[in-house]
């Protein structure tokens, strides 16, 4: 038993215990942030930062719970049908919008109340330097010469990068083959090894190779240029208006206790606006553009509306046709 007690003591010493004054009758116990992805991914790291800051603002610990599986649908479905007291919240991303129409078991946007908008990490269009492609116009020219010959590395159908690649295809009016890989690391490996000529990950995934001159980032699909790659134009600047990427928002079930949701939402927005949080998140390459509940809801509904025709075109609508 002695070994076990030492272990317990050592571990408890390591865990955060945040205590503080509690205003309303929420929160009455630790709050869980359900991350529908495995531990260690980009979203997971960002969510852990948010959890840490939110727990400071809330005066109650916020525990990250990873429940990966089926592109996030499993965990989100359980959240939507689960605890309504406001002690459980979760995150939705671009892939969630697509999953609604791709997976009969996935929950839909109207089953959630959006508490806050975190930000959009813009997708990029990158090409191997040895293709000689430097701008989107180069890409359009080359792809029109030889339709379908170029290959793009992206994630599985319905994933953020896949959706981005499909959107770019439509916007640029060209054709290339979408090759699915399991996550962003294999995507980067694929373009570096030359299995594909193009890739559509996030800025952080390829910025080092861009600077080293191995990969050319042709354009960023953000509202403005990315702070890590100030030399790369946006799609809009290049003449192809398009904004897409990993959109992240925090949600509770639609019928969650409104008073609790308000307290939680406020704490989250405060956390997102916190200076030290912004600095850490930015250093890690995340774009943070916080929005409150109303704005965020409108944004997500609009995204849902805009993405539907694209998903339909890309053959990703299998259920819940409109």
């Amino acid at each position: 038993m002695s070994l076990k007690s030492i272990v317990v003591a050592a571990l408890s010493a390591l865990t955060l215990s945040v205590s503080g004054a509690v205003a309303a009758d929420f929160p009455t116990k630790p709050v869980s942030l359900v991350v529908p992805w495995p531990a260690g991914g980009g979203s997971d790291i960002l969510m852990r930062m948010i959890a840490q800051k939110t727990s400071e603002k809330l005066g109650q610990s916020v525990v990250v719970v990873n429940q990966p599986g089926a592109g996030g649908s499993l965990a989100l479905r359980e959240v939507a049908d689960g605890d309504k007291s406001g002690h459980t919240f979760s995150m939705i991303a671009t892939g969630f919008i697509a999953e609604q129409y791709g997976n009969p078991n996935a929950p839909t946007l109207d089953q959630f109340k959006v508490l806050a908008f975190v930000g959009t990490d813009p997708a990029i269009m990158a090409a191997r330097a040895d293709t000689g492609l430097k701008t989107l116009d180069d890409l359009v020219r080359k792809a029109k010469e030889d339709p379908g010959k170029l290959r793009n590395a992206n994630d599985q159908p319905g994933g953020t990068s896949y959706v981005a690649a499909s959107l770019m295809k439509l916007k640029l009016g060209i054709d290339y083959t979408l090759v699915p890989y399991a996550g962003s690391a294999p995507v980067v490996q694929a373009i570096l090894a030359g299995e594909t000529q193009l890739a559509t990950p996030s800025v952080t995934d390829l910025i080092a190779q861009h600077e080293a001159g191995e990969i050319n980032i042709l354009a960023v699909a953000g509202v403005e240029r990315h702070f890590l790659a100030p030399d790369v134009p946006t799609f809009t600047e290049a003449g192809y208006p398009l904004v897409t990427g990993t959109v992240r928002a925090l949600v509770v079930p639609a019928d969650a206790d409104p008073a609790a949701a308000e307290v939680l939402g406020k704490a989250i927005v405060d956390a997102l606006n916190d200076e030290s949080f912004n600095k850490t998140a930015r250093d890690a390459g995340f774009t943070i553009t916080p929005m409150g509940s109303e704005e965020a809801t409108a944004f997500m509904e609009n995204l849902d509306k805009e993405m539907y025709p694209v998903l339909l075109e890309a053959g990703l609508v299998k259920v819940r046709q409109k």
């Binding site: 076990k4 272990v7 317990v8 571990l11 408890s12 865990t15 525990v63 990250v64 719970v65």
Partner: peptide, 18 residues
């Protein structure tokens, strides 16, 4: 009780397994 409680505490308090 000790075995069940010990393992439970280790995972619950030690690693925050919900």
């Amino acid at each position: 009780v000790l075995i069940a409680g010990g393992i439970y505490s280790l995972f619950y308090y030690g690693i925050n397994v919900p």
